[in-house]
């Protein structure tokens, strides 16, 4: 392919350049490319082997986990592990996964909306306190969030909010990173002329926001949604402090409870861990085009 030779209409012979490839004069040597490929391949093994092992280990019982070769399947015990998982969790495991889905979806939806509204306001409106607000929110970006969880727990227990769904959803909704991203994105992709034209045509601010701005900010919104969703799903300290009843636990907290139990059925824990990450990985793969571009917009300014 690379050596394909073409002829111009007037009889000159040339080798056309390949799209996305550098000109041949500066192309790296085959050796350099091979070495790079080997290095990247080893790094890839490091990143992927634990995931592969998780899939394999989730199919084994305790005996096979000890005796069989770690990186290949032995007898398939998925059904056995599933039953064990269900009996250990008193049938609550699917509920924990659904709880995680619920918390993450609600927090990400509401969080995206308020982040975008705030970022848009700071990018496109001139109002007193705007700079102070921006600085405050940027400071929030650098705030050690886990350290805040202890006082947050105290505050919520005074408000009688602990051990409710709100104790997870409210703190998870607030994402300074989301506002930052929305602000950068609104600044560059919502034309002020468009807003003025809509105002002259008599559209109210709410209508402009919901029918125009949200559409223009859609790529940033997907990114913000995904980041709040993942952060909520991954949070462990917050539910560990806030949630005490079994029926409200998200999957991370439930798995920790099971693992910290004396001599757990390890294959079942592995199966639980696998089922606890599958929804997230699927979401990442489906939405990858969006978060990659959205993250780029945020990182450029950062």
């Amino acid at each position: 392919m690379a050596t394909q030779i073409k002829t111009t209409p007037d009889g000159l012979v040339y080798r056309p350049s390949i799209e996305d490839q550098p000109p041949r004069s500066i192309a790296p040597s085959k050796l350099a490319q091979t070495v790079t490929l080997v290095v990247l391949g080893f790094v890839l093994l490091y990143f992927l082997l634990p995931i592969v092992w998780l899939v394999i280990a989730s199919s084994k019982n305790n005996t096979d986990l000890v005796s069989s070769f770690g990186f290949w399947f032995a007898d398939n015990n998925w059904a056995f592990n599933w039953n064990s998982l269900m009996s250990w969790t008193k049938g609550l495991f699917p509920r924990w996964v659904l709880n995680s889905v619920f918390y993450s979806t609600v927090a990400a939806t509401l969080g995206t909306l308020i982040s975008v509204a705030c970022g848009y306001a700071m990018a496109k409106f001139v109002f007193p306190g705007r700079r102070a607000l921006l600085v405050t929110i940027m400071a929030g970006l650098l705030m050690p969030i886990a350290i805040l969880t202890v006082p947050l727990y105290l505050l919520f227990s005074q408000m009688q909010l602990t051990n409710t769904i709100w104790s997870i959803i409210i703190p998870s909704m607030v994402s300074p990173f989301g506002v930052f991203l929305a602000n950068v994105y609104a600044d560059s992709s919502v034309p002020t002329e468009l807003l003025e034209a809509a105002r002259i045509d008599g559209a109210g601010e709410a209508r402009i926001f919901f029918t125009m701005v949200l559409r223009l900010l859609a790529p940033a919104m997907v990114t913000i949604f995904l980041f709040i969703f993942v952060a909520t799903w991954n949070n462990f300290l917050l539910p560990l402090m806030m949630i005490s009843s079994d029926t409200l636990k998200p999957v991370t907290l439930g798995l920790y409870g099971m693992m910290s139990y004396f001599a757990p059925d390890k294959g079942a824990v592995m199966l639980g861990a696998l089922l606890g990450v599958v929804p997230l990985i699927l979401l990442f793969l489906i939405l990858q085009r969006f978060w990659q571009s959205g993250l780029a917009a945020g990182a450029v300014k950062g």
Binding site: I114, S115, A117, C118, Y120, A121, M122, F125, V126, F127, P128, G129, R130, L133, T136, I137, G140, M143, L148, P151, L152, L154, L155, Q158, I170, P171, M173, V174, P176, V179, E205, F209
Partner: peptide, 26 residues
Amino acid sequence: QMIYGWAFALPFFLLFLLVFAAPIIS
């Protein structure tokens, strides 16, 4: 500009106060 700017920023700002500022003070 002021009314609508704050109106759009307010929901986040209030929750930010609840989740970030209030715990620090308390």
